[in-house]
């Protein structure tokens, strides 16, 4: 499957260039299969203009507006300073977590890089909130971020590493649905570090996804749930359009019977990776 190739060829921000280049008949179209052309034609019918803001109560009204401190020692109210009217890509973690946290952080890093082409830098925020405030003070959070290349970078959205008061953080965790009904499981903080929560407060669209889903699906979900226009939300889905007849054109017919795992499935973390602590 050419999903990655297509993504490289056609990031959303390049549609204008793409259309111009077609007009000049420089024609990247020649490289496209009939299937890709067909899908592209449909994508161009989707409205690229920003959608109106949601009216009425919002999911974020139910979040506690607690005070948090970032890796630079700066204070933020969770709802009023970070979430309200913004898009967030949020995860719980702790710096000493060696199980799923590093993988989750890495996939967040890739999402942040991909978001460069999808969201205004000042609209989307990456948020990592510690589950272990006793250890994770701002200095430790700063070291964690910088040593992993997660600091401020031109063209990339801000990434907040946040700590706060334990009981308030627990309140927030539960409001975010990141808890387990079994108290023994709930008491193990490594259980809560594997879901990424996507939210666009302006459109009041939220979803949580397992970090183990892998970059492609997470990025598609982020754009679909948080996208600001119909085109941004659904272009990736429309790119997957295919008919049985297409399979003979693109050799996918063989992959049907041969079980070509590379085509679709390498991105998702293995169960072992996902379940280890």
């Amino acid at each position: 499957m050419n999903r990655l190739l297509l993504l490289t060829l056609l990031p959303a921000s390049m549609y204008v260039l793409f259309v111009i280049s077609v007009d000049q008949s420089v024609s990247p179209q020649q490289a496209m299969t009939p299937r890709e052309l067909r899908n592209q034609e449909r994508i161009e019918k989707l409205d690229p203009r920003p959608l109106p803001t949601h009216q009425g109560p919002r999911v974020s009204d139910r979040f506690p507006d607690i005070l948090l401190t970032d890796q630079y020692g700066k204070e933020h109210r969770f709802v009023s300073d970070l979430v309200r009217d913004h898009t967030v890509c949020l995860v719980l973690f702790f710096t000493e977590c060696t199980g799923t946290c590093p993988g989750t952080t890495q996939v967040m890093k890739r999402l942040r890089e991909a978001a460069r082409n999808e969201f205004p830098t000042d609209e989307i925020r990456f948020v990592s909130i510690t589950l272990d405030p006793d250890i994770d003070d701002p200095n430790i959070l700063l070291h964690y971020a910088e040593s992993r290349g997660l600091g401020p970078q031109d063209g990339l959205a801000d990434w907040y590493f946040l700590t706060g008061e334990f009981s308030e953080l627990e309140q927030l965790r539960r409001a975010l649905g990141l808890y387990d009904l079994d108290p023994e499981i709930d008491a193990d903080r490594s259980e809560h570090a594997s879901l990424i929560t996507f939210g666009n407060d302006r459109h009041n669209r939220w979803a949580s996804m397992p970090a183990g889903l892998g970059f492609d699906d997470l990025n598609e979900t982020l754009c679909r749930i948080c996208g600001n226009s119909q085109r941004q939300r659904f272009e990736m889905a429309l790119k997957e359009g295919r008919m049985v007849e297409d399979n003979t054109e693109t050799n996918d017919a063989q992959s049907q019977t041969a079980g070509d795992t590379a085509a679709c499935c390498e991105e998702q973390l293995s169960a072992e990776q996902f379940t280890q602590n």
Binding site: E240, R242, T257, G259
Partner: peptide, 14 residues
């Protein structure tokens, strides 16, 4: 013909 997964779905109508 049948086959084995995981693989890419044979048709998609988004």
């Amino acid at each position: 013909g049948g086959g084995s997964g995981p693989t890419v779905i044979q048709q998609s109508f988004p």
